[in-house]
Amino acid sequence: MQRSTLDLWVGLFVMGGIGALLVLAMKVGNMSGGGGGETYALTANFDNIGGLKPRAPVKSAGVVVGRVTGISFDNDKFNARVTLNIEKTYTFPKDTSASILTSGLLGEQYIGLEGGGDTVNLGTGDKIKQTQSAVVLEKLIGQFLYSKAAEGGDKK
């Protein structure tokens, strides 16, 4: 085997190995880009986002129309501000409501959008006013127990 071909192959091998390590490392960091197409940003404030994560899907009628791009804490309102990137091809009226839903019993959480009847559509940077928080199981059980206890008290 020629010396230069040998060097070339070994060089490719080492580069490939380091490249594979980098690819693995990138999986931990943020994947840049992903899914082409133009998008516009919307924000929505939720009292409680539960286990919502960045890059979670935004669905309307079950169709994925965008992704969650950012989650931050709103210091003025003491709730969570979620930024959504919606694909340009989908438009929603001004009075659209957003709710945090769960796919399946233990599945991942996503944002569901439900269109209203307004004639004006949401544009870049607009805010979705009607929101519904994630269902927190502990609170739900607490409410259930409380109402049960109240019922028991009435019967006596």
Binding site: K27, V28, G29, K53, P54, R55, A56, P57, V64, E108
Partner: peptide
């Protein structure tokens, strides 16, 4: 999205 994001 959830495949990669949950992995990350």
């Amino acid at each position: 999205g959830s495949f990669w994001s949950q992995m990350q």
